[in-house]
């Protein structure tokens, strides 16, 4: 019997070790698994590598992991936003390494990691500083950069609704990086607003097939425990 539901956010992240590579879904303030991130912060694993589009703002989400000194490296496209004070502080003091990746290259590297592809050639970044040291190739007169897959140990993703098999549907632009990340990690943990029974999701609407998801936690379950 397959039932991927976990009782609490705390239990969902309990086995994440120091030094783990963790993908975190979200774009700006949208589609971020904030409760899983808070559970990860309380769990306290250190030396984490975080793969995410942004680096968090104010005291919330990834910014809280940076504030607490749990992050040693961040892989993202746009770490600096209004209010990204903790990223800027850790970057300036040199305690966090930054790997800056153009956004489309970031999502494609994650996608191919989940799809079993060994690399891809993209025109993005060709002739720029972000292609320095990378293999390049000219095809039909156009320059391309070889980019490699970006897998992770864990993915923390946010969806609107799931079922016990881990099938996920999203809310509007909250989808963003979550589907690719769900496919690209050894263990994928999904935070959802609600869980319906198996068969309760319209199969035409499922965006992330449950095979990519290992654990599922709903906000309402956690609220019930409090």
């Amino acid at each position: 019997m397959i039932d991927k539901r976990v009782n609490s956010f705390k239990d969902a992240v309990a086995d994440i070790p120091d030094g783990a590579v963790i993908m975190i879904g979200g774009f700006g303030s949208s589609g971020i698994p904030l409760k899983l991130i808070e559970a990860l912060r309380q769990h306290g694993a250190t030396g984490l590598t975080i793969i995410s589009n942004n680096a968090g703002v104010a005291e919330e989400g990834i910014a809280s992991l940076l504030r607490d000194g749990l992050v040693s490296k961040i892989v993202c496209s746009f770490p600096r936003s209004a209010g990204s004070i903790w990223f800027e502080k850790r970057f300036e003091e040199g305690s966090v390494e930054l790997e800056l990746v153009p956004q489309g290259t970031l999502s494609e590297r994650i996608r191919i990691a989940g799809a079993g592809i060994g690399g891809f050639l993209t025109p993005t970044g060709y002739g720029t500083r972000l292609a320095e040291g990378k293999e390049t190739r000219v095809i039909n007169g156009k320059g391309y950069v070889l980019e490699l897959p970006l897998p992770a140990d864990y993915a923390l993703v946010r969806a609107e609704c799931g079922d016990p098999w881990g099938n996920l549907v999203y809310n509007t632009a909250g989808r963003n990086f979550n589907p690719m990340m769900a496919s690209a990690a050894r263990v994928t943990i999904a935070e959802v607003n609600s869980i319906v029974e198996v068969g309760g999701l319209n199969p035409e609407h499922v965006v992330t097939p449950g095979i990519f998801v290992d654990r599922l936690v709903a906000e309402e379950v956690d609220h019930a425990q409090v």
């Binding site: 496209s77 800027e88 025109p123 060709y126 720029t128």
Partner: peptide, 12 residues
């Protein structure tokens, strides 16, 4: 700290 976002993808 630099930030690139989607600018390089749009450019090409």
């Amino acid at each position: 700290p630099p930030a690139v976002g989607g600018a390089m993808d749009l450019a090409v």
